[in-house]
Design a binder for these strands. Structure first.
Length: 368
DNA sequence: AATGATACTCGGC
DNA sequence: TTACGGCCGAGTATCATT
């Protein structure tokens, strides 16, 4: 089996939200900057979305409670701001528009990350690929003021790892010949899709590095993790990834929120869900989608997640139907779970399908 | 046997 | 006395329906 001769670029903005804040608060560059998501429950209740390097040096990383971050900061001069997604989105769009121009095979992976297949653009030449990457970095910096890291490799998997190795503000090129040596000694959780839990399971098998992972036979991995994941890990450990770049189409629209008070009162929770429903409705209308499945999610006071779902017999565009379904799901959930108290709740619409024409389904039927 | 629905875990940003 | 966001997708197991 030979790898298709591709050249893939991964581009990832460095500590993106915090860097965006640095742009409009330059007096804080070099000092800890923390972008937080506040639940509104208490003054400081919430979690860290992203932090810059001076903050990370203090142990302030994504996901930790803001209260913990405050403690780690002690008396350090710092900037702690609420996440402003509209602002980050506007900067992201400028960057993505720049990137789009460099390849017809462009895939935006998230607000701050994209992949490009530049095989044709550089005619398979890695030196030209590196030049192109430098040009891209310079343009993003010049036109938006944002630093990014770039990885170049024969596939998405290794390009992503190269990009991580390039952080911050760097460029790493891994040619096909160097894939094996690049992977050597890398921790297993540097592989896309292997996180803390899987790394821990692998550790129990005596595997902590990618080259150790490559020593496990396929059948062993498949017995442990299932056929699909086992095969993925087996190939990933060898730097093999033949997946073409492709857009993932969104197939669910959901919103969550933290309750002002822990509760198991269905009316109170339904009201809370109603408050985030308009956002979902806007999304649904903008994308001209209808839904068939309504799910609720409850995160209980011990932060354990529960979900319940119901699929309708017909597709639906009207969100007031969804909230009624959600209420029913909440009722049956809490009657099944007499001891569970909700801290955060969410509602998600899925089994989405495009609506044809201008009229939505209810209008169509109401017309007779 | 195939498909769909549901509940859950994991992972990434 | 601490103390925890809000999204999204992939995948697995299990059960029901056909």
């Amino acid at each position: 089996m030979t790898q298709p001769e591709r050249i893939v670029i991964a581009v990832d903005m460095d500590y993106f939200y915090a860097q965006c804040e640095e742009l409009r608060h330059p007096e804080y560059s070099g000092k800890p900057i923390i972008v937080g998501m506040f639940s509104g429950r208490t003054e400081i209740s919430g979690a860290v979305a992203t932090s810059n390097y001076p903050a990370r040096k203090l142990g302030i990383r994504s996901g930790i409670p803001l209260a913990t971050a405050k403690q780690l900061l002690k008396d350090t001069d710092h900037l702690l701001v609420k996440a402003d997604f509209e602002y980050y989105e506007s900067i992201s769009q400028k960057i993505m528009n720049i990137l789009k121009g460099y390849s017809e095979k462009f895939v935006q992976e998230s607000i701050d990350e994209a992949f490009l297949d530049i095989t044709n653009a550089v005619r398979g030449d890695y030196n030209r690929a590196a030049e192109l990457a430098t040009e891209i970095k310079d343009r993003i910096m010049k036109e938006t003021g944002i630093r990014c890291s770039v990885g170049i490799a024969p596939n998405k998997l290794v390009a992503k790892m190269a990009c991580d190795a390039a952080k911050p503000n760097g460029l790493v090129v891994v040619r096909p010949d160097n894939v094996q040596s690049f992977l050597e000694g890398k921790p297993v959780d540097s592989i896309l899709g292997i996180g803390g839990k899987t790394a821990e399971r692998l550790k129990q098998l005596g595997v902590t590095t990618v080259d150790q992972l490559a020593k496990l036979p396929l059948h062993r991995l498949q017995a442990e993790f299932g056929n699909k994941l086992g095969l993925y890990y087996y190939l990933a450990a060898r730097g093999i990834d033949e997946e073409p770049l492709h857009e993932k189409e969104q197939d669910q629209i959901g919103r969550m929120l933290t309750l002002k008070q822990d509760s198991r009162d269905v009316n109170y929770i339904t009201e809370a869900l109603s408050s985030i429903l308009p956002d979902i409705e806007k999304d649904l209308e903008r994308r001209r989608l209808a839904y068939k499945t309504v799910s609720i999610v409850v995160i209980d006071t011990s932060l354990k997640q529960h979900t319940r779902a119901r699929t309708l017999k017909t597709i639906e565009t009207n969100c007031s139907v969804a909230i009624e379904i959600a209420k029913g799901l909440l009722e049956s959930f809490f009657s099944q779970q007499p001891d569970t108290v909700a801290r955060r709740v969410g509602i998600t619409l899925s089994s989405l399908a495009k609506v044809e024409g201008q009229k939505n389904i209810t209008e169509f039927f109401n017309q007779g």
